[in-house]
Nucleic acid binder design. Structure first.
Lengths: 325, 325
DNA sequence: CTGAAAGCGCTTACAG
DNA sequence: CTGAAAGCGCTTACAG
């Protein structure tokens, strides 16, 4: 008779027993080895997910099974030092590390495609028509996108809703001249944030100003606002598509003798406290996005059906926004 | 009969056989378990080093040995998104990942000390009198510093020499009014880079200008240079203590209508191509620094004597510096 | 003080 | 298509 104490962590034995098969069969299913009856496979997978079973890395490694290599690829253009990517990578590592995978940074070729592949790939900063998608699809490598593309596995924050929340907040405060500090709108995130902003203004019958491009970075935000001020653009609020740009915007306003939020309200996006302590911003749950990416890629590795997920975001009101004077 | 092919990697079996003891005894010696005759221990150790035996992490882990947790701690003040730290962390992960360790980011308490510990710790951005050092020492946790502190395990780039190379390069080009764009000099790196700069100028009999603080970030560099220009400071060259500040400096010079390197030469530090493609800079071998940190910490985990290492740096001349006009 | 043996959680030929 | 069994390289009670 078995002890009643719940095992702290299920083993392949537990799975085999619960599914009524041998450990060998479970192993085959888990590794996608051919020659397992579909019904058996489904039964095993069901138990695996019910028990939240995760194979032990050490055991897997020791018994000759090679560690699966997961590659992640940051588009060369957007720079691999974007804080969001840094954070996302960190959580990706946390998610994959315990599960017996090896994570590696995939270098880019001169044409921007990954130089080499891995057993599974996470693509950062994806946009529709991203050439990396057909590239990977053609090679049969399971992959998951941080971003969006039809008929693929992807996960992203609800950028559109976030932008709406941010803009609505400013409108509610009486602002009508709201400048959008945007990133390159060929990227999905920048595009959706722009759309959300425009949507709210259209609903409110307020004319949108011509967006200014801050390239998602601090200096870009600074210079864009400085240029707008120099050009005499009138605005009482800024909605920046990233906290970094918001940070640059605040600095530029200060350098021009304008107070935040006294003269101009500023909202950011991401919620990275490093870039503006009292900044009103839209919080992304980066950890959850990363965890979801891990889950989706594992599904891909096991050949399960394609699906995607949108992670909610939330407006965090702090001290950088105020009622229009 | 055994095959004659040399085993690609010795196992504990090979050691036991060669030493004429059982694998259990070898294991005891390796783990410093008490109750092994001194002579036996010596014999085993001799074989271990002759065969260059290294225990297999996976096997060790599987057989009850718990996975060692390695924590790394970034000082709250300097911001965890500094590209150097991002890069360093990445290489740290590469180094520890294969070896059966689990890497985790240690959060900071409000007083700046790590909130929790691990089996071994890597401390980023250490300076002399860093309170984290006595904190860890008191708790008996092996640790290694990225930075410098007497009587500890540490590794760092040769910041002093790098700063000298950069400044000498500018002096050789005929510059005599060289502005140093510095970070917070309470940090070891900023301090040594400042010293290197001052040392070369003193040797050359050139007066050093008052350094300006750019806080190691792009915007800080931008604003510092803008302020210096506004204040009428005369300089034909800038030596920035980081590529990010150099990037900001170049932008500020451009915005002021000055050409680089036509009017002003700029040298950075780090060699991060993301922050200035044609930038003359001092290259740090971040990968080697990280690898060294891994090695040193493993030594600490085994209780070996404390030592440190200085990793050389190298001036990379590109297009942002020119002969003084 | 030391050896023989069981067992950690997997994978993979080898049979059926 | 699937099970029984050996084995990966260690550690650790258990005997002596």
């Amino acid at each position: 008779m078995k002890s009643a104490t719940p095992s702290p962590r299920p083993t392949i034995q537990d799975v085999a027993q619960a599914a009524g098969v041998s450990t060998g069969t479970v192993s085959r299913v888990l590794n996608g080895r051919p020659g397992v009856k579909a019904a058996t496979q489904a039964a095993v997978l069901a138990v695996v997910s019910r028990l939240e079973y995760h194979p032990d890395t050490a055991a897997r490694q020791l018994s000759g099974g090679s560690t699966k290599r997961i590659g992640f690829h940051v588009p060369a253009s957007s720079g691999r030092f974007l804080p969001f990517y840094t954070l996302f990578t960190k959580h990706l590592i946390d998610g994959f590390q315990g599960q017996g995978y090896r994570l590696e940074d995939l270098p880019s070729r001169s044409d921007g495609l990954p130089e080499r592949l891995a057993d599974g790939v996470v693509l950062f900063g994806v946009h529709d028509d991203d050439p990396r998608i057909p590239f990977l699809a053609a090679r049969g490598v399971p992959f998951v996108l941080e971003g969006h593309a039809d008929a693929q596995r992807w996960v992203r924050a609800d950028d559109y809703s976030g932008a709406r929340q941010a803009t609505e907040h400013l409108v509610r405060l009486g602002h009508t001249e709201i400048l959008h500090l945007s990133g390159d709108p060929s990227g999905q995130a920048a595009f959706d944030r722009l759309r959300g902003y425009q949507g709210v203004l259209a609903d409110a019958g307020i004319a949108a100003l011509e967006p200014v491009d801050g390239g998602f970075c601090v200096l870009g935000g600074y210079r864009a606002i400085r240029r707008a001020l120099a050009a005499g653009v009138q605005f009482s609020a800024v909605f920046a598509a990233s906290d970094e740009m918001a940070h640059g915007a605040v600095a530029a306003l200060e350098d021009a003798g304008l107070g935040v939020p006294r003269d101009v309200s500023v909202v950011g996006f991401d919620d990275l406290p490093e870039f503006g302590e009292g900044l009103t911003t839209v919080r992304q749950d980066v950890e959850r996005i990363a965890q979801t990416a891990v889950t989706l890629l594992q599904e891909g590795l096991r050949g399960e059906p394609v699906r995607h997920e949108v992670v909610p975001v939330q407006l965090i009101v702090r001290g950088s926004t105020a009622r229009r004077r």
